[in-house]
């Protein structure tokens, strides 16, 4: 049996034999990861610089602008 098959079988058997507690924890993990990545990340946490600027140069220019304009009060 190849290593890949052995590893697959190890995880497959492991997940098949998990207890009720284990199933509950996996459900919590999946719900949590779904909320974090499919809801929070997409709808509430866009990457500000990636969303508003396309190139590294544009991002640098924006940051320099922030860093220098703050001084001009």
């Amino acid at each position: 049996m190849s290593w890949l098959v052995k590893i697959w079988k190890f995880y497959y058997d492991g997940f098949r034999s998990i207890s009720g507690l284990g199933k509950k924890l996996w459900i919590i993990i999946l719900i949590k990861v779904f909320i974090m990545f499919a809801i929070l990340k997409i709808f509430f946490f866009p990457n500000f610089l990636n969303t508003n600027f396309e190139t590294k140069e544009e991002k640098s220019a924006y940051i320099i602008n922030v860093l220098t304009k703050q001084n001009q009060k």
Binding site: L25, W26, I28, I29, K32, V33, M36, L40, K41, F44, F45, P46, N47, F48, L49, N50, K59, S60, I63, V66, L67
Partner: peptide
Amino acid sequence: AIGVSTGIILEFEFGTNWSNYSW
């Protein structure tokens, strides 16, 4: 299991709320 990936939220915040710092 319950704590795993709660730290990822902090990285989301870096990109959204602390973008000047992150850059």
